[in-house]
Design a protein around this nucleic acid. Structure first.
Lengths: 143, 143
DNA sequence: TATATAGGTCAGTATGATTGACCTATCGAA
DNA sequence: TTCGATAGGTCAATCATACTGACCTATATA
C-alpha cells in the first residue's frame, strides 16, 4: 500500500494539519478574548449565520455537544442580542435561531480574518492546489 | 481580488476545515479517553517522538503553552514511564526528553489512526490533490 | 390519554488552561 | 568569583468549558 518514505511524509502531514489549524483559529480567538467570548460562541454565530432559522436541535447535532454545554453560551448570545429566537409555526416545541443585525456584524468580524487568511494562502498557492485542498478536506470527515 | 461567488466558496472552506480537523482528531481522542489522557499528552508524545532528546524549553515553544500547563501532563507521562528525562551534557540546566519503548508504542498507537485516516483519503483523492493539500497546509501558518 | 420529543435549568464534577509567586541549579560574562 | 540570565519545578488561586444526572414545562402524536 504505502511504503516507508511515504509514511514518513504522512507523519509530517499530521504536524502540518495541527499547525495549519492552529494558525487558522488564532486570529478569531484573539477577537473573542477581547469580547470575553469563546470558540463555542463563534461556532454558534457561524452556523446560525450560514443556516438562518436553525432549530436548536440541529445546532446541537452540528456542534456535537450536550444541550447543557450549549445552554450557557447560547443564552449569552441571546442576552447580547446577537441571536434571535422564534417559535416554529410548524411545531410549537421547536425554537428557531437567527442572527440579528448586530449578530451578523460580529459574525462577519470574526469570520473575516479567516476568509482573508484563506484568500491570501489561496492566492499564493494557485487554483489547482486549492482544488486539491478542497477535495481532500471534503473527504476527510467521511472516512 | 476575490468576487462574491468566490467568497461564498471560501465561506464553505471555513466549515470544511472545521469538520475535517474534528474528524481527524476524533479517533486518537477516543483512545486517549480510555487511558485517562488528554490531547496535550498526545501532542507531547508526538513531538518528543519526532524529536528525540528534545529540550523542555523547545517543547514549550512548539506547543505554545505555559510551563505550568505542561508540567502536570508531562509529569504524568514520566511517571507512566512513557517519557525519559536526561540532563544535557552540554548544559546542565537543560532536560532532554525522549520516548521510552513503552512511550514509542503508545505514540504509534495514537498516531496510527491518523496515518491511516490520511492514507485512506489520499488514496481516494489522488496524488495531485495531495500535493495541493500539502502546499496549502504548509503555507497557512506563515500568513 | 399516554408517550415521545424539544427545550430549559440546576447541581455536581472534571479537566485543562491561565497568572503570579517563589524556589533551585547552572551558565556565562564582567 | 560574583551576579544576572536562563532552565526548570511547583504551589495556589482562578477561570472556562465540558460532562452527567436529574427534573421541569410545553407540545405533538399515536
Amino acid at each position: 500500500m504505502v511504503d516507508q518514505s511515504e509514511r514518513e511524509e504522512i507523519q509530517k502531514d499530521i504536524e502540518l494539519f495541527y499547525f495549519a489549524y492552529r494558525s487558522f483559529t488564532a486570529r478569531p480567538d484573539r477577537i473573542l478574548q477581547e469580547l470575553s467570548l469563546g470558540r463555542v460562541h463563534h461556532r454558534i454565530l457561524y452556523f446560525v449565520g450560514r443556516n438562518p432559522q436553525l432549530p436548536i436541535n440541529e445546532l446541537l447535532t452540528i456542534l456535537d455537544i450536550s444541550k447543557q454545554a450549549l445552554n450557557i453560551p447560547l443564552r449569552k448570545l441571546i442576552e447580547l442580542e446577537l441571536i434571535n429566537v422564534s417559535i416554529s409555526d410548524k411545531d410549537g416545541r421547536v425554537r428557531l435561531l437567527a442572527l440579528t443585525n448586530k449578530g451578523n456584524k460580529l459574525e462577519a468580524r470574526l469570520t473575516s480574518p479567516q476568509l482573508k487568511h484563506l484568500e491570501t494562502v489561496m492566492a499564493a498557492v494557485g487554483k489547482s492546489s486549492v482544488a486539491g485542498w478542497r477535495k481532500m478536506m471534503g473527504e476527510l470527515p467521511f472516512v
